[in-house]
Design a protein around this nucleic acid. Structure first.
Length: 332
DNA sequence: TCGATTTGACCAAA
DNA sequence: TTTGGTCAAATCGA
């Protein structure tokens, strides 16, 4: 592993973060093992499970506080709690007898004609959502089709509803809502719901650039259909892969922060501490620094240590295009 | 002509 | 019962 220009406190903070996440996953694995055992009469299994769940929650909370020391962690926690509440509702049978299917549309009845199908749908319940607030309407690189607009109670401006243009030809369920939430200065809130599964995004994995604290680590969150494929990358392909990330920084963020330029060479390396962890760190660092590690299937987080303060506090999403040979190896 | 947007109606969730 | 999310006919515009 190459030496890094990162400050000591940043490195130790990052290591703590990784340690906390690894610990959380180990506890989750123990919980999974525990839950696969037969339930005894003394209730010890339940108590153990509850204890492990508490420890997992504590681990996540610690991680979030490490990631975010300027107050927005509450928003993140509330989102997680909301998601957990939604998830528990889906897992539990409804008491009122109403159906509780997940996302997707359905029709009122078999006899419903095509013409009468207005409004026949199932509202999504458990899709993963995240928000981003910007001073302008920034193109996120995806093709969206507007399908509705509505005035929201106590809101001065209407909410606009968009779906992925590939919804019908590729079954992509990604949607977003766009709403102006403040006039002076203008602030727009975009709420994304669900991840793209269409070909366009598979060629361009979702990138969330979450920079929340000046002079501290910021992260890029990449979502892949199956990150296990990343583990199969040769060093050359990994280099290729993360060089693409560098180009993203140049291309996607240039309008937002022209100073955000970097020249990074990164090579992949499997984390030795855990068979399923994927940690990538740079072999050659230049002015900026990029380190990636994967903590869960389907996600890769890329840490950057040198970001301009102008974009801190924003969550920026972008699109990445990878070369065909890398994509082919990743089975995109 | 065809794809995108607008807009009123419909319905599930709260 | 209210509110917000989605549908689809009507309309727009390239």
């Amino acid at each position: 592993m190459a030496s890094s220009p990162l400050p000591e406190n940043v490195l130790s903070g990052r290591q703590k973060l990784i340690d906390e996440l690894v610990q959380g996953r180990e506890i989750a694995n123990r919980l999974q093992t525990l839950l696969s055992q037969p339930v005894g009469d003394d209730g010890s299994l339940v108590n153990s499970a509850e204890d492990l769940v508490s420890r997992i929650m504590e681990s996540f909370t610690n991680t979030l506080f490490m990631l975010n020391k300027n107050g927005t962690v509450e928003a993140v926690l509330s989102q997680i709690q909301a998601a957990a509440a939604t998830s528990s509702r889906v897992d539990s049978p409804r008491l009122d007898g109403r159906k509780s299917e997940d996302s997707g549309e359905s029709c009122r009845s078999v006899s419903t004609t095509l013409k009468d199908r207005r409004g026949c749908y199932k509202r999504r319940k458990a899709a993963h959502t995240w928000q981003r607030e910007t001073s302008t309407s920034i193109d996120d690189g995806h093709a969206w089709r507007k399908y509705g607009q509505k005035m929201i109670l106590k809101a001065k401006h209407p909410r606009h509803y968009y779906r992925c243009t590939n919804k019908y030809d590729q079954g992509c369920q990604a949607t977003k809502q766009f709403q102006k939430i403040q006039d002076n200065p203008p602030i727009f809130r975009t709420t994304y719901c669900g991840h793209h599964t269409c070909r366009n995004l598979l060629r361009a994995p979702e990138l969330v650039f979450d920079s929340t604290s000046p002079n501290q680590d910021s992260s890029l969150l990449l979502s892949f259909k199956d990150s296990n494929n990343l583990n199969n990358l040769t060093p050359q392909q990994a280099h290729h892969f993360f060089s693409s990330l560098t180009s993203v920084k140049h291309e996607e963020f240039k309008d937002i922060e022209p100073a955000c330029n970097s020249s990074v060479t990164v090579a992949g390396q499997k984390n030795q501490s855990s068979s399923s962890d994927y940690i990538v760190s740079s072999d050659q660092y230049h002015d900026d620094d990029l380190t990636a590690f994967d903590q869960s299937p389907g996600h890769m987080t890329v840490m950057s240590s040198n970001l301009d303060s102008d974009i801190h506090g924003d969550v920026i999403s972008g699109v990445i295009s990878f070369d065909d040979d890398v994509l082919q190896h990743l089975n995109f």
